[in-house]
């Protein structure tokens, strides 16, 4: 598996991508987890809550930009298999319905070593998410193994 293209990207921020948080995205996300919390879906309940409107579950960050991220990753290094090793999420602001989130990904660490499945790449990705008020909403670090 050639990872030279990936190696040249270590420490370099990928092009920022912008996503608008829509009701249906939050609803699909909550339903996929099977999380019935009315803060994520029940408009009336959420309006009367501490937040005054629908917010997203904190792990909703995992859904923002992930599809494009995986596409970018696979075009740089078309691994046979990709497994998640770990996730670290830090949340600073709630994500609200209608927020416009800018996500920036980068590879912060990459090493390759011989494993059970041949040469395996151990990658650390860091991503940051800002809202339309330029507030840092969340940071995420993901450890991904590719081979």
């Amino acid at each position: 598996m050639g990872i030279d293209k990936l190696r040249s990207k270590v420490g370099v921020e990928w092009e920022p991508r912008v996503y608008q948080v829509e009701r249906e995205m939050i609803r699909r996300f909550a339903r996929a987890i099977g999380d019935p919390n009315p803060l994520w879906q029940d408009e009336e309940y959420a309006r009367a809550s501490h937040y005054g409107g629908i917010i997203a579950p904190p792990t909703f960050i995992l859904a923002i930009g992930f599809e494009q991220f995986v596409e970018d990753l696979m075009s740089l290094a078309p691994f046979n298999t990709v497994l998640m090793g770990g996730t670290e999420l830090e949340c600073y602001h709630h994500i609200r319905l209608g927020d416009v989130i800018t996500a920036i990904f980068k590879i912060s660490n990459l090493r390759q070593r011989q494993g059970k499945m041949g040469k395996m790449a151990f990658m650390t990705f860091d991503s940051t998410y800002k809202n339309q008020r330029q507030e840092l909403v969340a940071k995420c670090r993901q450890m991904i193994i590719g081979y």
């Binding site: 987890i33 792990t59 497994l83 090793g85 770990g86 996730t87």
Partner: peptide, 11 residues
């Protein structure tokens, strides 16, 4: 999915 496990822990 590993991240689904993470999301369950979030819930």
């Amino acid at each position: 999915h590993g991240q689904l496990i993470g999301a369950f822990l979030g819930q």
